[in-house]
Design a protein around this nucleic acid. Structure first.
Lengths: 112, 112
DNA sequence: CTCCATGCTTACGAAAAGGTAGGTACCTGA
DNA sequence: TCAGGTACCTACCTTTTCGTAAGCATGGAG
């Protein structure tokens, strides 16, 4: 999110969903609302810091809805807004592509 | 490209197309092969360093084909492989989404 | 002999992203 | 009184990414 104007839709979309985690979080919320801890377990490898940071951003973008249940211990549920769902839908073909070519992708020699 | 195994296709795809530029370069090559200079003009804002760096990576991933015409001044054409085209196709819905919600996206208040 | 266009390459450093580890607050139940 | 579970927050540091600016090689045109 560094620019204000875009040349094409892909540009804008990449800006929204960019980074290492947002797409995966979106994906995890595809089926159902999840609470923080569930989400953390669902998006394997993510740290708490990253998870919250990304959730906050996505909330501010209007992709994710955050619902606090005032209980003890606390319960906070995250779910997709319609906007978030529409983005998720747009990501499906990409996910399918990744799945289809998984082996090829894993076989790519990495320098980094 | 930091991991070797993925939990879902989206994970893998994001790894391949991740970063600020790859999707845009792919997109630019959608219609026709372009030479270095054309590509640079086509992907607005990109520096030569980034463009080459990304092209080299994408070439090594098998997404892009590089063809040198031995002339003076030099002419190098870049085009999509079938693999690259398939990825591009998978990106179309995302591009459409971005286009459709462009105004919303641009209206998001940015902290960074 | 110098300039030009093209397609790179390199060095340097700033900025952003990401990871680690620790701490906080709340009420509950033992 | 005290540990436990949940959802955070914060400081600090490392890694990765990105941008700027400069330079190089080629052969033809002038």
């Amino acid at each position: 999110m560094k620019k204000r104007t875009y040349n094409c839709g892909l540009d804008a979309a990449v800006d929204v969903v960019g980074g290492k985690w947002k797409a995966l979080i979106l994906w995890a919320l595809h089926r159902e609302a999840l609470r923080f801890g569930e989400l953390k377990r669902s998006v394997s490898g993510i740290s708490e810091k990253m998870l919250i940071q990304q959730l906050r951003e996505m909330e501010s973008y209007g992709l994710v809805h955050r619902e606090v249940h005032h209980q003890v211990p606390p319960k906070v549920e995250y779910s997709l807004t319609e906007f978030g769902q529409s983005l998720n839908t747009a990501l499906i073909p990409l996910g399918d592509w990744g799945e289809k070519h998984m082996e090829t992708i894993e076989a790519i020699p990495r320098t980094r």
